[in-house]
């Protein structure tokens, strides 16, 4: 590593940051996650992304479920909705349908996404709800103090798998690719710049964008997913990866030993909002009698 030394002066940097403007996407409240948590990365990257996209705070809604992501909305200066365990996607879908002008960001962890909320995942994806789902995958339940999660590695000993986890972990990317998500990406909490880029792209994507964010749980996983381990494992998607090739994306998604970061898959498809507008247009153009009653 031959990083150049470049003296950075605090007040210059502060001015730069203030001028950059992403601080306005932060709330007043200090985030309460465990220090070192990748959620910080996600929260900050989101503010950077929102700022880059020039979105007005009032037009953004961040929706969370339960888990360590719960408090996420409290830490961004947008509208926020801290909902229930596993319900982030349907609530976010409701918010988006309730007001299409809003930019809706759903946030949650692997428990929220792939355990209790797994039933909602395919549907948000296949409906192509125009929103962004940032899934913070640390392979453990942090809020409840360290139980196994759907993405916990085989053999991982947690407080609920004291003898070892025997459940095959799910492959979130593979799931979403097969759920017909129109944007599937992966990022790593330890690479904030890349993460911010990915979140920016995910939000920019018109349709359902799913970004899996690999992160350690700094408090309850000292062995498995640590910054050190993950930092060594992650790599970039190879140049020339064809984002339009779902099968290629799936093949990449299966290379779990060295998770690749980047946009796996991307396509354009009618969004739920468009489908609904279509229905409205059709309905107003034709006189369809209601069924049954």
């Amino acid at each position: 590593m031959n990083e150049r030394v470049q003296p950075v002066y605090l007040e210059d940097k502060l001015e730069e940051i203030r001028e950059d403007g992403h601080l306005k996407y932060r709330s007043k409240s200090l985030p309460t996650w465990c220090p070192g948590c990748g959620y910080f990365s996600m929260a900050d990257a989101l503010t950077v992304a929102l700022n880059r996209l020039g979105l007005d705070n009032k037009d953004v809604v961040v929706v969370s479920g339960i888990g360590c992501a719960s408090r996420f909305p409290f830490f961004v200066n947008t509208y926020g909705f801290h909902t229930l365990h596993g319900r982030v996607l349907p609530v976010a879908t409701g918010v988006k349908i309730g007001n299409d002008a809003l930019t809706v960001i759903a946030v949650g962890g692997d428990g929220d996404a792939f355990a209790i909320g797994a039933g909602h995942l395919p549907h948000a994806a296949r409906r192509n709800v125009d929103m962004t789902y940032l899934v913070f995958d640390n392979g453990i339940y942090g809020l409840t103090k360290g139980q196994t999660s759907p993405t916990s590695a085989l053999g991982f000993k947690t407080s609920s798998t004291p003898y070892q986890n025997g459940d095959m972990p799910v492959n979130p990317l593979l799931m979403l690719l097969s759920y017909e998500a129109t944007w599937v990406g992966q990022a790593y909490a330890g690479r904030p710049h890349h993460l911010a880029d990915m979140i920016t792209q995910a939000i920019e994507h018109k349709g359902f964008s799913f970004l899996r964010i690999l992160s350690p749980c700094v408090t309850f996983d000292k062995t498995n997913n640590t910054y050190v381990n993950l930092g060594m494992k992650v790599r970039d998607l190879p140049e020339g990866h064809d984002r339009s090739d779902r099968l290629a994306a799936m093949a990449r998604a299966m290379e779990e030993d060295h998770p690749a970061l980047g946009v796996y898959f991307e396509e354009q498809r009618q969004t739920l909002g468009e489908v609904m507008q279509d229905a409205i247009d059709k309905a107003q153009g034709m006189n369809l009698a209601p069924k049954g009653v």
């Binding site: 909705f81 909902t83 319900r87 349907p90 976010a92 879908t93 409701g94 007001n99 039933g119 609904m276």
Partner: peptide
């Protein structure tokens, strides 16, 4: 806007979500 959701939980969730959004 009308949506048939994947289950009742999703239905009420989306309803609450939309209500939150002012719909």
């Amino acid at each position: 806007r009308f949506l048939q959701t994947e289950d009742e939980i999703a239905a009420i969730s989306a309803t609450i979500g939309a209500g939150f959004a002012g719909s």
